[in-house]
Amino acid sequence: MNLADIINPNNLVYEKPKLLTENTMHYCPGCSHGVVHKLLAEVILDLDIQEKTIGVSPVGCAVFAYNYIEIDWQEAAHGRAPAVATGIARCNPDKVVFTYQGDGDLASIGAAEILHACNRGENIVVIFVNNGIYGMTGGQMAPTTLIGQVTATTPNGRDAGRNGYPLKITELIAQLPGTSYVTRQSVHTPASIRKCKKAISKAFQAAIDKKGTSFVEVVSTCNMNWKLSPVKANEWMVDNMFPFYQPGDLKDSTKTDPASYTPLKN
């Protein structure tokens, strides 16, 4: 059997999801954003919610996310995506609203917005792509930068005395009663990508079922600003990011009542 016989539409097993547009992504080679976009498109197609999904894109590398996935999008001011998503979700209770944010957008500039949106338990999905660096602006230190990590603004490595400690915002958010599903995933191997897809799917299902905020952190790479090749960046992430940002579910109350938080007794 030769190649021409195999390459036949009847034998197709994997192709680009139909929801992704023909535009070439502007991301650097090997950027994790492309994989997360693809997973989002696959999940939205699987759940058949293309017509009622509204995404809120951040400021950061993913600012042009609206060019790549064919759903309704809204661009928010820097860090304010959860606030904008709150408004959209409250005005359109039948829609599925998600925000797509990076670590500078979510953990630094928009830290107040995300904490309060999660604490209010808005019915939104938050996709948080954490690569520990400000990618778009040229690799400056982010709140999630690891101790000792070299960036443009910490050329000798992040020093806890001078720059403070890395922020585990996902752990903070998992404590809030408004959140229903908080998880940390990664997209560096085929197995982890399939696991991440399941997590995103579960988060969207929780939003459809009105369970409260679901939060999916994706520990990812920024090979260009880490100054490594894409393959080496994945290895660096496994060796250095995973001991601090451990993948796994931090909270899963999608099966229980979201209002299980006990109020004060008078």
């Binding site: 097993v13 994790s32 085929p190």
Partner: peptide, 17 residues
């Protein structure tokens, strides 16, 4: 389809018989 799964630019199509 491992290659297509990890491809960030979704530029790989996989066939199987």
């Amino acid at each position: 389809s491992n290659c297509a799964t990890v491809c960030p630019d979704s530029c790989i199509v996989v066939y199987r018989v």
